[in-house]
């Protein structure tokens, strides 16, 4: 079972159709975004690390919220995804360390979340569920057969978004 899971690394995106699980581990300040078209059973998981791609020639499109979401939508649309029926869920964006006297530090999670929401709105995709913020890392899974999205954290039961 486990070896069939599609693992998404940091700053990467994977998608599949019909069956299988797409998983990304230990989202800290990064954000995991799942896209799921229930009619086609087409699902993608994108793991972004930073809000915007400052250098337009940077080839790592999935590292950034803006270029990552645009590219994912472009790819999935080529496979027939229809935006109006696509279910989008997000998780992550935690603040892992609280540095006293420097409240700006580690706010990258919050900035990521804000950017992801902005870009999804521009793409006219609605977020149907989210689990963001907090101070803990999350593992996110998308079951492509059912569209179920689960979030695992340490010391808490698995949460279904």
């Amino acid at each position: 079972m486990a070896d069939k899971d599609l693992k998404v690394g940091i700053g990467d995106m994977k998608f599949t159709r019909g069956s299988g699980v797409v998983i990304t581990y230990a989202l800290g300040s990064c954000i995991g975004i799942t896209f799921y078209d229930p009619f086609l059973k087409l699902g993608a998981l994108l793991h972004i690390m930073l809000p915007n791609r400052a250098d337009p020639n940077d080839p790592k499109v999935f590292k950034y919220a803006d270029s990552g979401i645009h590219e994912t939508v472009r790819k999935l649309s080529a496979f027939g995804m229809v935006k109006s029926r696509t279910v989008v869920k997000i998780a992550g964006g935690a603040k892992m360390f609280d540095v006293k006297g420097n409240s700006d530090f580690g706010n990258i999670g919050q900035r990521n979340a804000a950017m992801v929401k902005k870009i999804l709105m521009e793409e006219r995709l609605r977020i149907s569920a989210e689990d963001t913020g907090g101070t803990y890392a999350r593992t996110m899974l998308l079951d492509v057969a059912t569209g179920d999205v689960a979030v695992r954290t340490v010391g808490k039961p698995e949460k279904h978004l």
Binding site: I10, Y25, S29, C30, M49, M96, F105, G106, A137
Partner: peptide, 15 residues
């Protein structure tokens, strides 16, 4: 913090 190793290492990599 006490957290998943992967999550902790995203802090410097994102910074």
């Amino acid at each position: 913090t006490i957290n998943m190793l992967g999550g902790i290492l995203t802090v410097p990599i994102a910074e």
